[in-house]
């Protein structure tokens, strides 16, 4: 039995037993290599679920809309390791109760989707631990190294060109499981903290605000980078922030639901004196 059939059966069982009220998974998209999020509410709809190597989107963001989990019922969601880490962060930040999330975990390797054993976020702790010891993506690091080699002036010019393309469609924000604020800082207008205009300055403001808000929270799912309609390499910004968090604080985003948010905590024995 292939993984797709296995997970369809499992989803059907979860729904018909009443263990979950909803399964968030992937379905056929508008072309043969596209997958789209689907919301399955009854066992007889599970044939719509697709699971293969094209299922790359991190679906954990669909867990946070207001009211979804407020009835105490559980929801099952198809997640790769990056999405499982997102659930841990959302739990650490009190956005979801991890006990209400049933994880249908899988990973993609060599063009194939394969199942990951476990159903609760905690079941995947050893896997995430091993990912932490492997470190951040070497591919991303190689790409980031190209930027590090530039002079500060050239690097600024590089980002100047990239951010000039931004149209403030906020696809990066909307697709990101970590951007769950009910009112984003850029939408606050009394006072207007951030320019709403999409000129280069306003675009810098937006992209830098977002980069800082994601420091130590991004799991490198790549959602924002893929969503960006003007191809800004957002992965490189987020990677750089993740690297800082890991190098300076040994903080690997989404390690567990008990993890303290790196920018919202401090240690009594912190060597820096400015904190206390």
């Amino acid at each position: 039995m292939g993984i797709q059939e296995q997970y369809r059966n499992e989803a059907a069982e979860l729904l018909s037993s009443g263990a979950v009220k909803l399964v968030i998974g992937y379905g056929e998209g508008s072309t043969s290599d596209r997958r789209r999020p689907v919301f399955i509410r009854s066992a007889d709809e599970t044939a719509r679920l697709v699971l293969d190597a094209n299922c790359i989107a991190n679906l954990s963001g669909y867990l946070v809309p207001e009211g979804l989990l407020s009835d105490g019922k559980s929801v099952a969601v198809f997640l790769k390791p990056d999405g499982i880490r997102s659930v841990n962060i959302l739990a650490a930040e009190a956005q979801v109760n991890p006990d209400q999330v049933v994880i249908l975990g899988f990973d993609i390797d060599g063009g194939q989707a394969s199942p990951l054993p476990g159903r609760k976020a905690t079941d995947f702790a050893p896997l995430i631990e091993s990912q932490k010891s492997t470190g951040l993506s070497t591919e991303l690091q190689q790409e980031a190294d190209q930027l590090e080699l530039m002079s500060a002036t050239d690097r600024f010019e590089y980002w100047n060109q990239q951010f000039s393309k931004c149209i403030k469609c906020y696809a990066c924000r909307q697709v990101c499981p970590m951007c769950y604020c009910r009112r984003c800082i850029v939408d606050v207008n009394q006072p207007q903290w951030v320019n709403t205009s999409s000129h280069t300055l306003g675009n810098f403001e937006w992209n830098i605000v977002r980069a800082f808000h994601l420091a130590g929270r991004c799991v490198a799912c790549g959602g924002c980078d893929r969503a960006c309609p003007v191809n800004i390499p957002l992965r490189l910004i987020n990677h750089r922030m993740s690297k800082e968090a890991l190098d300076a604080f040994d903080h690997f985003a989404g390690e567990s639901a008990d993890q303290k948010p790196v920018l919202a905590t401090f240690r009594q024995d912190d060597p820096e004196t400015f904190i206390l």
Binding site: R36, P37, V38, F39, G61, Y62, I167, K168, C169, Y170, A171, R173, Q174, V175, A227, P229
Partner: peptide, 11 residues
């Protein structure tokens, strides 16, 4: 249901 509410389509 799956619309994330960005403005990619409109822009």
């Amino acid at each position: 249901q799956r619309c994330i509410g960005c403005a990619s389509c409109t822009f």
